[in-house]
Design a protein around this nucleic acid. Sequence first.
DNA 1: CTGTTTATTAAACATCGTGTTGAAAATTAA
DNA 2: TTAATTTTCAACACGATGTTTAATAAACAG
Lengths: 187, 187
Amino acid sequence: MRSKKVDRRVKYTKMVLKNSFIKLLEKKDISQITIKEICENADINRATFYAHYNNQYDLMEKIQNELLENIERYLADYTANELDAVPVDTVERIFEYIQENAQLCKLLLSERGDISFQKRVLMLVYEKNINELTRNGTITKEDAEYIHAFMLTGCIGVIQKWLNDGMAKSPRHMAKTIIELSKIENS
Amino acid sequence: MRSKKVDRRVKYTKMVLKNSFIKLLEKKDISQITIKEICENADINRATFYAHYNNQYDLMEKIQNELLENIERYLADYTANELDAVPVDTVERIFEYIQENAQLCKLLLSERGDISFQKRVLMLVYEKNINELTRNGTITKEDAEYIHAFMLTGCIGVIQKWLNDGMAKSPRHMAKTIIELSKIENS
DNA sequence: CTGTTTATTAAACATCGTGTTGAAAATTAA
DNA sequence: TTAATTTTCAACACGATGTTTAATAAACAG
């Protein structure tokens, strides 16, 4: 897949830069995080930062893409092993993954995070389930799109609340809740 | 309510600064809008900007608060006149207001906007209707909160889609759609 | 209309982050 | 060990920031 000839130095540089950036993101908004700051905390020369990223937002995008890829791989591993995958199980896996990477997910999915990224995460699930929605001929395509928008963003709100509440409920319980909330629309 | 002794000069300054800022917001993200830029477009001295606002984000917050106050006043005027207000009508009024202020709303409610503000807008409606949700004893308080989160953010998604689609459907139709989507949960 | 108050302006200032550069030093891979 | 690559260091010009002063302009109350 990917050429694995990555210099150890590059690996290290990217790692500490990412960690430093995330640590700063917990304290303040991305807009007021300076590149100088990121580099000082990471003990990396500023010129080296520019060798890899254009700015904070570029770094953020790379981190987001990485997370998305991980979730996709996580889901792919699962569906490959268990062939009788049920929607509830898929959603449960998503919640499990979020729970395991709570620190980063809380930042990226929080109310401060950016909405378009959050939708990308949810799309992973819905792309596989959206067809069921329009299968009933009773709903027009336009209505279906609004229902889709409603459910997608609705799920994001549920996930945010779950994260803010310290993930008290189990992934299984959350999966059932979300499935239930999304399902009823078909009636 | 408020002392109306506002100097005309201050009024003008704030107006042109706001307009300049909004015009810039249509082109780029708030994080890459400079104060110098805002002032140059508005033909206002930079020192004057600092006499009223701390930075772009402060200005943004003031604009958001103003919009929220306007919506509240808009709704208050309505419910004061017509005593037999129905939920559908209230929601319809919201959509009407958004339609009338589409330029600004599209910016503040878009995917680039910040989520917490969007929720504040929706709270205006739900605060008056949320009680009905928990009235049926069948739902636990915890579940009700998740349903609430789901519906709140779900509505935001619908509004965003509506704005992005050029507000093709009528406010009335959108109000019905949202009420329908939110209502079913009670069953 | 007039005198007083208040807001805006212009200019200057130190400060800081930015993005880039070229050569030296350090580390890696082979 | 050697050659290639990456990181570092120092320096640079540049532009935005936030603050301050005195001068100017406009609004206000009477």
